[in-house]
Design a protein around this nucleic acid. Structure first.
Lengths: 184, 184
DNA sequence: GTCTATAATCAGATAGAC
DNA sequence: GTCTATCTGATTATAGAC
C-alpha cells in the first residue's frame, strides 16, 4: 500500500504543487480531507518530506568512494552516472524538487540545497577542465549548467515501467562526454 | 512600457502560473484588479497568448531554409542552434511553455503542439543516424529527448542581461555533438 | 480607463461526534 | 481513525459609479 507521502507526491507531479488541493490528496488516498489531516500536519509538511528525500539521495552520491577517488574526470563521470541512477530510483521525489519555484520558506530551503549540489558538480567540472580532461573552449560555468540540465531533463520523460531504460545512465554519460557525433 | 502580457508572463514565471493571482498581476501592472479585467478577458487568455508566441517562434525555425537544405546532420545542427536563439530571444514565453502541466484545455493544447515540435526534431535525429552522421550506439529516441532536454534546460539559468552569453548557441551545439571531452 | 464594493467559489485548516 | 460541519481567508470575476 502506497504511503500518503507517495500518493501526495504523485498528485503534486501530475498537477503541480500549487494546483493540487488537500481535497485532491485526500480523495486520491480514499479518505476525507479531515481524516487526511489526522495523519499529516499540512500541505507544506508533505512537500518538505518529499524534497528532503530527493536531496538526501543526491547528496549521498557526493560522499560515495567513486566520487572521491581517481582523476577529476573519473570522479565527474561517476557522479553524473550515479546522479542519473538516483533520479531514476527516486523519480517522483526528484521531479518535485526540480519544479520548486521558491514561493515558501520550505521551497527556498530546497532551492538553496539544490544550488549547493549543483555547485559541487560545477567544481568537479572546473577541476577536470584544469586537469585538461575536459575541453576548454567552452565557458566552464556553462558546461556545468548544461551538464546538470541534461541530467535533470530526464524527469520530463522517463517512466520506470517502460522497457529499454536500463542503459540510460550509460547512454547519458556517453552523450555528455563524447557527444552525438559518431566516433572517428 | 511593458505590455500587460509581458508583465503577466514575468509574474507567472516568478511564482508559477497557478500560484499567481489576478491581484498579483494587477499590482505588478500598477492598476487595480478591476481595471486589469477591463483589458483582458481572464487569466487563461493571458496564458494562451503567451504560449502561442513561444510556439510560433519555435515552429518558424522548422520552416527556415537552413532547416530544409543540406545533409540531415547539417539540418539538425541548424535547428538546434536556432532553437537556442529563439529560446534566448523569447525567454519568458518559452520558459512559461516549458512549465505547462496540462491542467486546462489551453495547457493541453500547448502540450500537444510542443510534442509535435519535439517529434519533428526527433525525426531529424533519426534521419541523421540513418545517414551515419550521428552515433548509433544510443537509442535514437533517447538521443532526441536528451538533445531537447539539453536545449530547454537553458531557461533555468539564462539571463539576457548577463554578459558572456553571446556564444551560447554555438557552445551548446559543440557540447551536444562533440561532447565535453577535449578533441583528440 | 480606473475605481470601490461585492458576489460566488474554493482553498487550507479545525472542532467535535462516533 | 474517520466522519460531518464549519471557520477563515484568498481567488476569479462582475456591477456600477466617476
Amino acid at each position: 500500500m502506497a504511503s500518503l507521502l507517495d500518493i501526495a507526491v504523485t498528485e503534486f507531479n501530475q498537477r503541480g504543487y500549487d494546483a493540487t488541493s488537500m481535497e485532491h490528496l485526500s480523495r486520491a488516498a480514499g479518505i476525507t480531507k479531515s481524516s487526511f489531516y489526522h495523519h499529516i500536519s499540512g500541505k507544506e509538511a508533505l512537500l518538505r518530506a518529499a524534497l528532503e528525500r530527493a536531496l538526501d539521495g543526491l547528496f549521498a552520491v557526493l560522499r560515495e568512494p567513486g566520487a572521491l577517488a581517481g582523476t577529476p574526470l573519473e570522479q565527474l563521470r561517476y557522479v553524473v552516472g550515479r546522479q542519473v541512477e538516483v533520479l531514476m530510483a527516486e523519480l517522483p521525489y526528484v521531479t518535485l524538487l526540480l519544479r520548486v519555484r521558491g514561493n515558501t520558506e520550505t521551497e527556498r530551503w530546497a532551492l538553496d540545497r539544490r544550488r549547493a549540489f549543483d555547485a559541487a558538480v560545477a567544481a568537479m567540472v572546473r577541476a577536470a577542465m584544469a586537469a585538461g580532461e575536459v575541453r576548454d573552449d567552452v565557458n566552464p560555468a556553462h558546461a556545468a549548467r548544461l551538464l546538470s540540465g541534461l541530467v535533470n531533463s530526464i524527469v520530463e520523460w522517463y517512466h520506470p515501467d517502460r522497457p529499454g531504460h536500463a542503459d540510460l545512465p550509460d547512454e547519458l554519460v556517453r552523450i555528455a562526454f563524447e557527444g552525438l557525433l559518431p566516433r572517428p
